[in-house]
Design a protein around this nucleic acid. Structure first.
Length: 402
DNA sequence: TCTGGGGTCCTAGGACCC
DNA sequence: TCTGGGGTCCTAGGACCC
């Protein structure tokens, strides 16, 4: 790559790049399927599922991420629905992240399909942000046959908005001098951190655009939205935000919590079904915790009723655990304490919070009070799962279940 | 047959401690 | 005999993100 004459690389004006794959899951799922070219495609499915990704043809029919599948089929009966293949998505994601790291070690991954890059240290070698953006796009396109969009700015949030504006398959550099003229016409709902509820609340206050937000006294916003959010949105409206990235310490930043939940195929009030599902979810979570060498003390269950109202109940144990049976037992206690009789449940979930490395959380063995055997049983399950796959080994209470 | 599944962070009240 | 006050933990809910 030809590098134009440049001085003062440290003062590069838009060093933060936000790279975002276009319709990532849909692009990966269709890249080897030329027969689907020009057809509306969504990734998702299940009778009670939602859209995970919609290609750009599907978007012309109004199909969007998070849209219920029932609505999808109504809006677009000819839609092609593909089941997600997360192994494939993860593998493509790894390759894409390698391309990012070829540009700079300062990469903050946000999800499988997007990341921030700080290219301050790369300018001498690779050129300015716009050139680096084009290099990333062509490299990813050549290697993975998918397109992406890139936003460049001085701050994280403006780079993020810029990549969205650049979609699909484009680049947008927002110079610091242009930040307010870029931001202020946008609807408040465009800001990162403003969802449906906050957007509606702001609109009720007569604050429609980011410019309106910017010209509202910060005290007013703090009173209306809470001190933290009020201050934060006022800052964002002026383009004030993080300029440094949080580079992950390792490939797997330790998670603060791990959980699993599942929507039933049909709502149920059958305790036996619910207890069995809690067992399956507890086993899944505990296995992931053991694989990550973490233990946790706070067990939370989530219940969603047929009318979609959702509650959580949690309990903090005296000792951190990664033992399936202990997590399950806590979950059952929390469930039974609710005293539900005929309430029909749509979803149940189990989550363990307050995770710490197992090495730093030695169990206290007090007077032999711990039942032993269960951790050993879990380890045996883990070994068998590694050898034969997860279908081969299931807790006894799940066998015979539908 | 409206509304998945994986997370993070914030708020707020009460308990408890100093 | 006058209601302080900060910090931390626990619990529940809620908003948001991808």
């Amino acid at each position: 790559m030809v590098t134009p004459d440049r001085t003062a690389y440290d003062h590069i004006r838009t060093p933060i790049l936000h790279v975002d794959m276009d319709a990532f899951y849909a692009s990966v799922a269709t890249r080897d399927r030329p027969e689907l070219a020009g057809r509306p495609v969504v990734v998702g499915g299940g009778s009670r599922g939602v859209v995970l990704a919609a290609n750009y043809v599907a978007r012309q029919f109004g199909l969007r991420s998070a849209m219920p599948m029932t609505r999808v089929r109504r809006l677009c009966p000819d839609v092609v629905v593909l089941a997600p293949d997360f192994e494939s998505f993860t593998s493509v994601s790894r390759s894409v992240m390698e391309v990012f790291r070829a540009v700079t070690p300062v990469v903050e991954a946000i999800s499988l399909d997007e990341a921030f890059l700080d290219v301050r240290g790369s300018a001498r070698r690779l050129g300015g942000p716009a050139e680096i953006a084009e290099w990333l796009r062509s490299t990813i396109h050549d290697e993975q046959a998918i397109s992406c969009s890139v936003g460049a700015a001085r701050t994280v949030s403006v780079a993020k908005l810029a990549s969205r504006r650049a979609k699909p398959d484009g680049v947008l550099v927002v110079d610091p001098a242009e930040v307010t003229s870029f931001l202020h016409p946008l609807d408040v709902g465009e800001l990162w951190g403003v969802g449906e509820k906050t957007r509606a609340q702001l609109h009720r206050l007569g604050l429609m655009s980011v410019g309106d937000l910017a010209h509202t006294p910060v005290e007013t916003l703090r009173r209306a939205l809470g001190p933290h959010l009020g201050q934060h949105l006022h800052d964002l409206a002026w383009g004030h935000d993080r300029e440094e990235l949080a580079v992950r310490a390792g490939p797997h930043e330790p998670e603060r919590s791990m959980g699993a939940d599942e929507t039933f195929g049909r709502d149920t009030d059958d305790r036996e079904v619910i207890v069995r599902e809690l067992m399956r979810l507890s086993a899944k979570v505990a296995a992931r915790m053991r694989a990550a060498s973490v233990v946790g003390r706070t067990i939370t269950i989530r219940i969603r009723f047929a009318d979609f109202t959702t509650i959580t109940r949690s309990r903090t144990l005296p000792e951190a655990t990664d033992v399936t049976v202990e997590i399950h037992r806590a979950a059952i206690r929390l469930y039974d304490a609710l005293g539900l009789q005929r309430a029909r449940l749509r979803l149940v979930g189990v989550r363990v919070e307050g995770l710490v490395p197992r090495a730093g959380a030695q169990r206290q063995l007090v007077l032999g009070e711990r039942e032993h055997g269960w951790p050993e049983a879990d380890r045996a399950v883990d070994r068998a799962t590694r050898r034969f796959g997860s279908a081969a080994v299931r807790p006894g209470s799940l066998i015979g279940g539908r």
